[in-house]
Nucleic acid binder design. Structure first.
Lengths: 155, 155
DNA sequence: CTGCGACTTGAAGCGCGCTTGAGGTCAAGC
DNA sequence: GCTTGACCTCAAGCGCGCTTCAAGTCGCAG
């Protein structure tokens, strides 16, 4: 159940309601219900509820008791996923997402974070080089390969 | 207590015993006791014990009942930190570190991981761009800034 | 020789990011 | 109309990566 990730199962909602657009253009109006969003984002409904509870996303309404979301939430989820992978915590992301106009403090912290990302990216690039080298390095134990270790040390 | 990270407090061990080397060249022989390693790596002794228990590092002996480590462990810890930041789990890192000669399966997985890092690095780079832009974007709410959102979507 | 303080062990605890369970509600298909 | 099944809420649980606790041991300064 868990391993079997998001499969499409409620595409009907979208395809039935198109009376306006010419082709199959991406609908930015019709609300998606949580199942759809889950399927498209690859996240579990429980995760979406969790995010909503934490203020990362918001539902635009209900269909019965099912949450419905604006299609725009998908972009937002992409952003969240991106930020998560960059090492941001949930509450931190929430702060970024709810950033007001005069929130100079937060903007400053964003710049700081960007600088941190510099270092992180550099480390990841070295890690990647190390892995690539390690993948076909003839050395017995990887740890004994100077090139492998060097890739990590530098920086 | 916790916030007050590793401060030097056992440097005596090293400085007292130097009868050999000419200058203050980095000693690759004299074992470091756990406090030293903790101070130099920025990790807590408990974390070092934890890593040892999980097979990520190994102590070379004891000084009384204190663990002692080869200075080489510092490189290894750097590698581990790097790998951790790249999203590797502890047990996964252990497998990489204990890689044997004929472990082709593991080498293949390293290549896969390297490819995953490609995507990850790309996302981080985009995240960085988004943060840099967001840091001085005049838009009211960051989420409303098309350039900010675009930085995340692409890719 | 006596403290002191940083280490030792093993087990329990914590924060984070969700997931799972119990018990319930609703919309749609038969 | 009734069943089905995906959602609902709220609370508890889980895996990961360490940290903390309790009780004990040791090396070194005074």
């Amino acid at each position: 159940m868990v391993g079997t990730a998001g499969r499409f199962d409620a595409v009907s909602t979208v395809s039935t309601a198109s009376t306006i657009s010419t082709v199959a253009a991406v609908d930015t109006e019709t609300p998606l219900d949580i199942g759809e969003v889950a399927a498209r984002s690859g996240l579990a409904p429980s995760a979406l509820r969790f995010y909503e509870q934490r203020g990362l996303i918001e539902s635009t309404g209900r269909n019965g008791l099912r949450r419905t979301y604006s299609p725009a939430v998908l972009d937002r989820l992409a952003l969240i996923a991106c930020a998560r992978q960059a090492g941001f915590g949930i509450s931190e992301i929430a702060r970024f997402l709810t950033a007001g106009p005069g929130d100079t403090e937060l903007r400053r912290r964003m710049a700081v974070k960007a600088d941190e990302l510099d270092g992180m990216i550099a480390r990841l690039v070295r890690m990647r080089a190390a892995l690539r080298h390690g993948a076909d390095c003839p050395e017995e134990r990887l740890v004994d390969c100077p090139e492998f270790m060097a890739a990590v040390k530098a920086g």
